[in-house]
């Protein structure tokens, strides 16, 4: 489909300290490891007063093996986008570490991080600067990192446009002249032009029409196979997540409540919230009606989370213990699945 890369990215994957012997263990090291990551925000503060604190992400730990897709699901406000921002270096974590290739990125500067992790955002209308041409947008990473001569950069841009299935003449156009699907291809091209290892996909298809969504999902699958990418795939669309991912983590109010393989989560969910999410996914099967998922309407306030298990006010099975003590995220199966529920 595409030619060999024209420019070799200088030292693309390996940070300086990597020795040859370490590369043997590379396969075992997860591409991305998140250890106890937390983020608290202060709300409503001003020049002269202190605000309330809000735990957007609390003590999240995840390991994403190389070449795998980790799905992250949860409702709006559960902290999945904040988590993505921390991984991308857009927000400093309040606590915890992110390890890329086994090395903490806390001290790494943004440019070094950018070579390993790149984002694909949700809204293809807001993710491209409307005043820049496509070639400028896609080529920005090369310019910022000073890779290649202008001529090599142009060749690399054209090659990347081919890879994401955009006509080369798109290079001279403005985002306003492209359709939603085409814009999302531009965003993917910008993310891939430096050949990162890890791509954080934050709801990459939820702003697109269904017919275009399938094109983009196919493209993401192809690119993963071609470049051996590792994805963190954030989505609220469970059908898409089930189709794409190897493992799934379910977030509720800033914490991971369940994590496991696709088969475990979709086949035999343990946490009542996961079960409710799966029940409320409406597959196109006529005659099934809308299921009664048995959740109350008490959407919790993230700045004032309930005591005990954060899910208990909505949980159909909540018991006294759930109101008092927060369940820990514990390993429940030999194969590294975890759930945080007293009743699991």
């Amino acid at each position: 489909m595409n030619a060999q890369p024209i420019i070799e990215v200088a030292e693309p994957r390996q940070l300086p300290s990597t020795s040859d012997s370490a590369s043997a263990s590379r396969a075992a090291t997860p591409a991305l490891e998140i250890c106890g990551l937390s983020k608290t925000f202060t709300l409503g503060g001003g020049l002269f007063k202190r605000g309330r604190t809000l735990g957007a992400v609390s003590d999240v730990s995840l390991r994403i093996p190389r070449g795998q897709v980790m799905g992250l699901v949860g409702e709006s406000g559960c902290g999945k986008s904040t988590l993505a921002k921390m991984l991308l270096g857009l927000t400093t974590p309040s606590d915890g570490d992110v390890l890329v290739d086994g090395r903490p990125v806390r001290d790494a500067d943004q440019k070094a991080l950018a070579r390993h992790i790149q984002p694909i955002f949700q809204d293809p209308y807001s993710s491209l600067n409307p005043r820049k041409r496509i070639a400028q947008i896609v080529g920005l990473p090369l310019r910022v990192h000073g890779i290649g001569t202008p001529r090599e950069q142009r060749a690399r841009i054209a090659e990347t446009l081919d890879v994401v299935g955009l006509p080369r003449r798109a290079a001279e156009q403005f985002p306003g002249q492209l359709s939603g699907g085409q814009r999302q291809r531009v965003a993917i091209a910008r993310a891939l032009i430096m050949r990162p290892d890890i791509v954080i996909c934050d709801e990459p298809t939820s702003a697109l029409d269904v017919s275009v969504q399938a094109q983009i999902l196919n493209l993401l699958l192809d690119l993963k196979a071609e470049f051996g990418l590792t994805y963190l795939f954030i989505s609220h669309d469970l059908a898409v997540v089930e189709h794409l991912v190897d493992r799934v983590a379910v977030m509720y109010l800033g914490r991971i409540v369940e994590e496991g393989t696709r088969e475990q989560i979709f086949g035999s969910p343990r946490h009542p919230y996961t079960r409710a999410l799966l029940d409320s996914a409406l597959t196109p099967e006529p005659g099934m009606g809308v299921p009664d998922i048995g959740l109350g309407d008490a959407t919790p306030d993230p700045s004032d989370p309930p005591a005990g298990c954060a899910f208990h006010p909505r949980c159909p099975k909540a018991q006294a213990a759930c109101r008092q003590q927060r369940p820990r995220l514990e390993d429940i199966r030999s194969d590294n699945a975890r759930v945080a529920c007293h009743l699991a």
Partner: peptide, 12 residues
């Protein structure tokens, strides 16, 4: 805007 995020992640 997500394009500002994109620029920030690149280390601009």
């Amino acid at each position: 805007a997500e394009y500002v995020y994109a620029a920030r992640t690149l280390g601009c």
